[in-house]
Amino acid sequence: MSRFIVFDVETPNRSNSRMSAIGISVVENGRITQDYFSYVNPEQHFDAFNTSLTGIDAGTVSGAPTFAGLWQKIEPLFSSGILVAHNAQFDMGVLKKCLRDYRIAWKSSVPY
């Protein structure tokens, strides 16, 4: 059985160290079996460029969970298969920075 966790993140500014949104699809044997989406309160400012690109601003994420709060919900998905992203180096980098900034211990290496 093949299981892939496909994900994409959006960021609020050029530091690319926090998420403002995340989408996740679980693909098993070539079929999407689960979808998940959430806005994320990055607890950082939004650059005009990022807002123009994504349509996400401080108002959009008002009331959204922070990454630390969201991680409890998405970690089981992230730990359940090989991670896949269109621009994996970027998305994995944002994930790594969020884990670091929120002092969340996870795997030392992750297949992607």
Score class of each variant (00 low, 15 high):
residue 45 H to V: 04
residue 44 Q to V: 01
residue 69 G to Q: 13
residue 38 S to D: 10
residue 63 G to I: 12
residue 100 R to V: 04
residue 49 F to L: 13
residue 51 T to N: 10
residue 28 E to M: 00
residue 109 S to M: 03
residue 28 E to F: 00
residue 108 S to M: 04
residue 34 Q to A: 10
residue 23 G to D: 10
residue 18 R to F: 03
residue 35 D to I: 04
residue 6 V to A: 15
residue 40 V to N: 10
residue 8 D to K: 03
residue 105 A to T: 12
residue 14 R to K: 13
residue 55 G to T: 02
residue 4 F to V: 07
residue 87 N to Q: 06
residue 105 A to Y: 01
residue 38 S to I: 09
residue 44 Q to N: 08
residue 67 F to G: 01
residue 18 R to Q: 12
residue 22 I to R: 06
residue 77 L to F: 13
residue 32 I to Q: 05
residue 93 G to Q: 08
residue 80 S to A: 14
residue 100 R to L: 08
residue 58 A to L: 05
residue 73 K to Y: 00
residue 9 V to L: 07
residue 16 N to G: 05
residue 49 F to Y: 13
residue 63 G to C: 11
residue 39 Y to L: 15
residue 106 W to S: 14
residue 21 A to H: 10
residue 75 E to S: 15
residue 19 M to T: 08
residue 6 V to G: 01
residue 108 S to L: 02
residue 57 D to S: 11
residue 44 Q to D: 09
residue 62 S to W: 00
residue 68 A to V: 06
residue 79 S to H: 01
residue 66 T to K: 03
residue 54 T to N: 10
residue 68 A to L: 12
residue 85 A to I: 05
residue 103 R to M: 04
residue 31 R to N: 14
residue 24 I to T: 06
residue 71 W to M: 10
residue 38 S to R: 10
residue 60 T to P: 04
residue 14 R to W: 07
residue 6 V to E: 00
residue 45 H to C: 07
residue 57 D to M: 03
residue 75 E to W: 01
residue 97 K to L: 11
residue 90 F to W: 08
residue 75 E to F: 01
residue 24 I to M: 03
residue 104 I to P: 07
residue 79 S to Y: 00
residue 85 A to H: 04
residue 106 W to V: 11
residue 18 R to D: 02
residue 15 S to Q: 14
residue 105 A to S: 14
residue 40 V to P: 12
residue 103 R to S: 12
residue 103 R to A: 13
residue 89 Q to D: 12
residue 65 P to R: 08
residue 107 K to W: 06
residue 19 M to I: 10
residue 38 S to K: 10
residue 96 K to S: 15
residue 46 F to E: 03
residue 2 S to R: 11
residue 16 N to P: 00
residue 56 I to V: 10
residue 87 N to I: 03
residue 40 V to A: 09
residue 9 V to S: 03
residue 94 V to H: 01
residue 54 T to Q: 01
residue 51 T to D: 07
residue 30 G to I: 05
residue 31 R to Y: 06
residue 27 V to Q: 00
residue 112 Y to W: 14
residue 26 V to C: 01
residue 76 P to E: 05
residue 28 E to W: 00
residue 3 R to Q: 11
residue 38 S to A: 12
residue 56 I to S: 05
residue 109 S to V: 04
residue 2 S to D: 10
residue 59 G to C: 06
residue 46 F to K: 08
residue 103 R to F: 02
residue 39 Y to F: 15
residue 77 L to H: 05
residue 86 H to N: 13
residue 1 M to Y: 07
residue 88 A to P: 11
residue 54 T to S: 12
residue 107 K to A: 12
residue 19 M to A: 14
residue 43 E to G: 09
residue 26 V to M: 01
residue 58 A to S: 15
residue 6 V to C: 15
residue 56 I to Y: 03
residue 30 G to H: 05
residue 96 K to P: 02
residue 98 C to A: 06
residue 18 R to K: 13
residue 80 S to H: 05
residue 84 V to G: 06
residue 49 F to H: 09
residue 12 P to L: 04
residue 71 W to F: 15
residue 1 M to I: 05
residue 39 Y to N: 09
residue 28 E to S: 05
residue 75 E to Y: 07
residue 109 S to I: 01
residue 1 M to C: 08
residue 16 N to W: 01
residue 81 G to D: 02
residue 84 V to T: 07
residue 41 N to T: 09
residue 111 P to E: 12
residue 82 I to E: 15
residue 20 S to I: 09
residue 56 I to W: 06
